[in-house]
Design a protein around this nucleic acid. Sequence first.
DNA 1: ATATATCCTCACTATTCCAGTCGACATGAT
DNA 2: ATCATGTCGACTGGAATAGTGAGGATATAT
Lengths: 147, 147
Amino acid sequence: MLITQKCHYAMRAVFELALQYNQKSGPIKIADIAKAQSIPPRFLEVILSQLKQGGFVGSQRGSEGGYYLVRPPEKLMVGEVIRFIQGPVIPPETKKKETASKEERVFQELWRRVEDAISGVYDSVTFGSLVERWEKTRDVPVLHYSI
Amino acid sequence: MLITQKCHYAMRAVFELALQYNQKSGPIKIADIAKAQSIPPRFLEVILSQLKQGGFVGSQRGSEGGYYLVRPPEKLMVGEVIRFIQGPVIPPETKKKETASKEERVFQELWRRVEDAISGVYDSVTFGSLVERWEKTRDVPVLHYSI
DNA sequence: ATATATCCTCACTATTCCAGTCGACATGAT
DNA sequence: ATCATGTCGACTGGAATAGTGAGGATATAT
């Protein structure tokens, strides 16, 4: 699978922090993020602490503590988060010319192109743009009314 | 991981059959494909029989039997094989608008773009073009001589 | 100061998926 | 008839994924 569940959660968590970024209402609690984005809270703990390691978020301990985004959402590409949580799309050994057999080498150009194509998308979308889109469509009713 | 080992094997197997396609030397034995492409023979058995189910290859039983490509390599896109072996890049439930929560819906456009980007590459490369490339570079010495 | 709310750490489990194997059987060429 | 092949279904070991548990550390409120 291209995107793991964990990565989906990570992106939704960052997205949630991005939504609140301009509200200046202090750090957001794990519990709140978990609720807003329907993420198992204990699992979210693991994820956020990993995102902190990666320098994407910061935290405040104690009462009224929580997490916050380090960079403004417009300067945070989704690709950065995805790559950090998931690792590279194409594993390095698939790309290494030296260790590849002749047969494998035929495919390397293909994998390179695939990776570039994916990166092109990943790096053209920021959490800022996602928030913008969200703001625009937040009140648009779902088309699929119950019958 | 985007491409499983099994899928790599499948592509190399098909590629091997593509190489021999114009030689008209009858079906190729599992053992030969396995040897040429360094694939565990028993595993290759599983893979080829799956590819047969998918209509990509045909087989001949008995002595002097083996496998052969059903379509000419130029008319076989790598995407067809990859999608058949691996299933869709983005799982359908990630894309379904009806079942997605509001939060998930923000990301759907992103996943759609990623999928399209990948498909664009997958569907622009045929096994015929891979064989061509192979024929061109088959005798180019490896740059990395042993020291 | 104390209580409490929060993050922090790290180990642990359950489940699923992947890669690969095994044994017995079916079929076709010679 | 024999032997070389493909066919079939079950099976296993290991890795990765998703998620949980228990207790510790620290900041804020009172």
